[in-house]
């Protein structure tokens, strides 16, 4: 498996194949005298923004802390939770229970539901 090609930036789905974002970052633990170990995946706008530019990350973080769901922390998913890596990365989680969908839920509850026909 090629981490950058097959995992990074790929679609993240939960155990019911519900889309829950994409793999925005990969956390690798460096250990003395041992090979590095893949520990977590990260998903979140700040992680993604950091890869483009550190300043962009600060802007996105500031925006997210003030607006909407007020969450700027990315979600970390332990590698052990990963069920399958194809074109999608499937993890053993319930998407709606995680913070990955914080903004989706916020928009749904605060905006979409209040527009006629949105419910």
């Amino acid at each position: 498996m090629d981490l950058i090609r097959d995992v990074l930036d790929n679609q993240l789905v939960d155990r019911h194949h519900r889309k829950m974002g994409k793999v925005d970052g990969i956390i690798i633990e460096l250990r003395d005298g041992q090979p590095p170990r893949l520990t977590d995946l990260e998903t979140g706008a700040t992680t993604l923004a950091r890869r483009l530019h550190p300043r962009l990350e600060r802007w996105i973080a500031a925006l997210e802390q003030r607006w909407g769901a007020k969450r700027s922390e990315p979600l970390r998913i332990p590698w052990a939770k990963v069920r399958q890596v194809g074109i999608d990365v499937e993890v053993d989680l319930e998407a709606e229970q995680t913070t990955a969908l914080a903004y989706e839920q916020w928009l749904r509850n605060h905006v979409i539901r209040h527009i006629p026909g949105g419910r």
């Binding site: 889309k19 974002g21 998903t43 989706e104 749904r108 979409i112 527009i115 026909g117």
Partner: peptide
């Protein structure tokens, strides 16, 4: 681009960010 849920066949509240964009 961001891996959000999308689809015109979904009810707007099942794809809240997607329907917000076109709105």
């Amino acid at each position: 681009a961001f891996g959000w849920n999308w689809g015109e066949n979904l009810h707007p509240q099942e794809a809240a960010r997607f329907s917000s964009v076109y709105t």
